[in-house]
């Protein structure tokens, strides 16, 4: 695979990343699936350790981080979010995936329900879809008026500049998936009962509006890419590559230093005085989960 000999460069965060001029084993069809998987697992483990360093940094410095994940259905946003949150403390890193607004929320300032989810010091919030719904699905499916849409495009940069000035680091990812790959993933969802829930009637309807979505996406990116919060596009046709690339990028744009928690030596337990004041109740009084496995 040649990964050991692959050139390595250091990003500003201290994260070591393979030289992008050398083809990744994940992109090399000559590399066996087993080797590709083992490379992926190893890299993911390495990135997870870096994510923990980032978490410690966020806690220590009281940083506020918001990461937005946008993209078409089945683009792989959820998979990346899952891999980011996996090793992290949910008290530091949480996911926000808001559903359709209630009747009351519909009468509020558009950003209000999102603003309520923004991080406090020492927190990182991952938005699985975000306020950008208005520029995508709402626009294409006709769920907002022309006035609301243009007002949104006007307001977003102001809103995000305010977030930035309040000390929030905002990173925005667009997951780019091709037409064919999306179709393949939809078929996978249809066939897999554990994934079927991911397919909503809206997803199916939006399949017919590929071009309109593309136009809406292009316009959204051009209107809302600002110095304080750039858009980064993740090529997500190959899920595993997209996950590694996105996490490595995230680690490179959120400055963090230090190490994951120092090694802990588990001290010997102090001998406890055995009194007669505690007697374990009989097992029959507790409801145990049946051990069927």
């Amino acid at each position: 695979m040649g990964t050991k000999s692959a050139k390595i460069k250091k990003m500003a965060s201290g994260l070591e990343v393979p030289d992008s001029t050398i083809p990744s084993p994940l992109a090399d069809p000559k590399v066996s699936k087993k080797k590709r998987n083992s490379f992926y697992e190893r890299e993911m483990r390495r990135l997870h350790i870096e994510l923990i360093k980032l978490q410690e940094h966020i806690k220590r410095e009281g940083s506020k981080v918001v990461v937005i994940f946008e993209g078409r259905d089945a683009a792989g946003k959820g998979g990346v979010i899952k891999r980011i949150t996996e090793p992290l403390n949910p008290r530091v890193c949480r996911v926000v995936a808001l559903g359709t607004p209630t009747e009351r929320q519909k009468t509020q300032w558009y950003f209000q329900r999102y603003a309520a989810e923004l991080p406090a010091a020492g927190e990182m919030v991952l938005f699985d879809r975000s306020w950008y719904n208005r520029a995508g699905v709402e626009r294409v499916m006709g769920f907002c008026s022309d006035e609301e849409y243009w007002e949104f495009l006007r307001t977003v940069p102001e809103f995000e500049r305010m977030l930035s000035r309040s000390g929030i680091k905002l990173i925005k990812y667009w997951f780019s998936v091709s037409d064919d790959v999306q179709e393949e993933r939809f078929l996978g969802r249809v066939e897999d009962p554990t994934k079927r829930w991911k397919l909503s009637p809206m997803d199916l309807e939006s399949r017919n509006k590929w071009q309109q979505y593309s136009q809406a996406k292009d316009r959204m990116l051009v209107h809302t890419d600002i110095e304080q919060a750039h858009w980064y596009v993740v090529n997500s046709d190959v899920k595993k590559r997209a996950r590694l690339n996105c996490i490595a990028h995230l680690l490179s744009v959120v400055p963090h230093k230090g190490s994951a928690s120092a090694k802990i030596k588990l001290p010997k337990r102090a001998p406890e005085k055995r009194g007669d004041d505690y007697v374990r109740p009989p097992l029959s009084v507790q409801n145990f989960v049946p051990e069927i496995y």
Partner: peptide, 20 residues
């Protein structure tokens, strides 16, 4: 829509200069 995008981009660039 295209006309608005063009006008927006121009005005937003001015706004950006002011914000900076």
């Amino acid at each position: 829509d295209i006309a608005k995008t063009f006008a927006f981009l121009h005005l937003k660039s001015i706004e950006h200069l002011i914000a900076s």
